[in-house]
Structure formats: C-alpha cells, structure tokens
Write a protein that binds this DNA or RNA. Structure first.
Lengths: 221, 221
DNA sequence: ACACAACTAGACCACCCTGGTCGACTCCAA
DNA sequence: TTGGAGTCGACCAGGGTGGTCTAGTTGTGT
C-alpha cells in the first residue's frame, strides 16, 4: 500500500509536467515499445528521442515497467474515450455500423497513431509484465470492441438465400480489407495531414456494391 | 571472385550434410530470423535450438549474413517451386483462381510453415543486408505473385451493374479475410496435422455466396 | 542574501549478450 | 601413425542494458 502510494506520487511528477513535454516523452516511449516490444525496447533510445536526460525518465517512472504500465493505461483510456465511446451501438445496420467504426477509428488514429501501434503490441504480447488488474482492463476493452462489432446487428436485412452469419463475415472482411489496403497504400505519410475525402468517396462506392449484393433488394418492380 | 568461390565451398559443407541435420539447422534459423528479424536474431539461440555447437554454424556459414542470404535463397526457391509454379495461370475465373492460390499456399505452408513466416519478414525488412542480386530475385518473386493474382482474370463474369475493378477487390478481400481468420483460429496447432476437409467445406459455402452475389446470374427464368 | 527543495543531465555501474575465434578433441581413411 | 575433416563450447572484445548517483541549476519563500 505504502509502495503503491509512492508510485502515485512519482507518476504525479510526470503528470504535472507541461503537456507538450509529457506528450513528447509519451510519444517517444509509445513508438519505442510499439517498434520493439517490452523486453527489447531501450530506455536509452526513449530518452534520446524524447530529448531528456536518462535521469528524468527514472525520476518520473522509477522503473521501465512502470513506464510501460502507464502507457498501457494511457492507451486504454485514449482508445476508450476517443474511439469506442463514440460508437453508436444502437445502429442495427451492419454496413452503417462498420462504416462508423472505420471512420471513428480512422479519426482517433489520425489524432494519435502511436497509441494504436502500441496497443497492437500489448494486445498480442502474452503479458508477463502487467499486474492482473491491468490485464483485466485489457480483456474488458477487447470484449467491448467485440460487442461493438457483433452485438445488436439486424441480420434480417441480408439476402434471404444465404446463411446470414456468412454474409455478416463477408461484409466485415470486405470492409477490413479496404481499410487495410488503404493503410498500406498510405504508409509513410502522416495520417493527420491526409485529405481523406476522396478515399471516403471510393469507400462509399464499395459499400454501394456490398449493399446491392448482400442485402435483400427492396423494390422488386 | 576468389572469395565468392570460397563461400560456395563453405556452404557446400552444409549442403553435403545429411538432410535431417540440414533441416533442423535450417528450421531453427528460419524460426529465429522470422521471430526477431536480421539484427536482433541471435546465433546463440539458433545453435541451441538446432542442437549444434557454435563452431559448427560458422564452419558452415562463416558469417551471420551468409546464413541469412542462404535462407532467403532457400525460401525463394521453396516458395517458387512448391507454390507459385503449381498455379494454373490460365484459369480465368477469379474465384477459381483465388481458391487455387489459397489451396496451394495452404499446402505449401503445411509443408514448411517457417519458410512463409520468414519470407513475411524479409519481404518487409527494407533489406540493408542482401546483395542486390538477391534483392532483385525477391522483387521478381513479388512481381510473379502479383501477376498470378491479377493477370488474365475474366472480369466479364461479374455483375454488370458494378465497377468490375471494385468487385474484383471485394472478392479478393473476402477470400483473404477467411484465410486470415482461419489461420488465426488455428494458431498453435501444427498445420501439417490438421484435417482441413471441414474448413474447405465451410470455405465453399462462402464461395457459393460470393458467386451468387457478385457474378452475373446465368438463368433469368 | 540565503537556504533549501525541486528539477535536470549524463557519466557511470555491473551485468549480460553479441558475433565471431580458437584450441582441444574425436573419428576415420590412408 | 598421421593428418585432415568435423565438432564442441570456452573465450574474446565490444557494445548495449536498466538503473543509480553526483554535481549542478533553477526557483521560491523568507
């Protein structure tokens, strides 16, 4: 308990830094952990990228692991508040729902790309680090994301001559496929500086085809 | 030239080993490079996993990089002969073609999973290692794979009321999506020991829907 | 003006792991 | 008996590790 409080005090030192400095350190650390994973990430590279002395990092976090935990916590909160919380889980139409998911994710990603790269890492790393409280938080977020994708979708809109579960997956894979390909096409560019309008246009073209192909046709003149 | 010959002689030592030993060393090295990339791969871990003394590895390859180059060359040949060469590039039907690609890739992957994991690594690593001759070979294989996927496909079979290029992509993403999801579902199991029959059944179910949805309906009773 | 605490940088530590070498040893053919 | 191919792992110098500590600066209250 006593130790726990001390940790809080020490991290408070970091949190009472001016935002821009916090941001620089956080981004440097996120980038390093995202690129190399926990074990192989180097605190030396982090301080160099952040432009601070080695002493400061350990003044703010005392141990590498504490820094890592802080980043996990930060990322979870960021993804929750800047992405998941914004989704309208009431939307019953799969394509609308997935489009929303894609758009919100893209916006959040544009705001802080490193958080998402880092989260991809700690979501996969079979977390030997991390207190079980944090591990539970991670699991919760996974579940929340899963629900947002699968829950409350109205399958009755799909064409009647096919297994709706399969149609569901095909639509999801199609949209994921576009998103993935777009992201690959855009590697190297700063997400925040891209004008996405033409891509959304292109995307809607795909959606129209998906609707035409997988949904029950409404008017059968 | 003289150096080049010496390299050949030294690698010949490795190649005249009994196959099972060659295989064990190769697999250990493939796995290590696949897991960590060139720089962070450890020769110590390789020799331990291969069950040989450190001396032997350098007796066979003299330098880490030589080992790496050998593995790249080996992988390229493997993928070419066990996968790409088997594809019937004459098949004009996209779904048939992609199904073929998927099946052949799965078979090759079942035969040597590590080669594919390793190839994923060296296809991405902006190869600072590697003589330009090998880099060219890699580029050629990329091109060949690309052609096998895009060339000679008959777009006239797709439904007429949609951009065939988009339909093309949607079908590809769908099939890739299934393959990826299946691979994820099967992580941890040895590919070679799995009975794929039920999965192919499931897969054909998806294909039927794709055909129904994206192809021109033949009989309009 | 002074004291004292918060803050900061980076030299430094002991340790570990790296790619690669080398001498000692075994085995087998001549 | 000799010599060379094959084999091993202790060993090397070097570099990188997470973390500490000292020396110095800055800021603030009195």
């Amino acid at each position: 308990m006593c130790v726990k409080e001390e940790v809080d005090i020490i991290i408070a030192r970091f949190e009472s830094l001016e935002e821009s400095k916090q941001h620089k350190i956080r981004q440097a650390a996120l980038e390093e952990f995202a690129a190399h994973g926990y074990e192989k990430a180097s605190t030396n590279r982090i301080v160099k990228a952040a432009g601070i002395g080695k002493g400061m990092l350990f003044y703010y976090f005392t141990r590498k692991q504490e820094l890592y935990e802080y980043l996990v916590k930060y990322s979870l909160e960021f993804i929750q508040s800047q992405y998941l919380d914004k989704v309208d889980a009431g939307e019953p139409d799969l394509i609308e729902r997935l489009t929303q998911l894609a758009r919100l994710k893209m916006e959040a990603q544009a705001e802080n790309e490193e958080v998402f790269k880092f989260s991809a890492v700690f979501l996969q790393e079979g977390e030997p680090h991390l207190p079980k409280e944090l591990a539970a938080d991670i699991e919760n977020m996974k579940q929340a994301g899963y629900k947002l994708m699968y829950e409350g979708i109205d399958r009755s809109r799909f064409r009647k001559d096919a297994d709706p579960e399969k149609v569901f997956h095909l639509i999801r894979w199609s949209i994921d496929g576009y998103q993935q390909e777009l992201l690959a096409r855009l590697t190297g560019q700063k997400l925040a500086e891209i004008d996405f309008a033409p891509y959304w246009q292109e995307f809607y073209g795909y959606l129209a085809i998906l609707k035409k192909s997988f949904y029950e046709t409404e008017e059968e003149s």
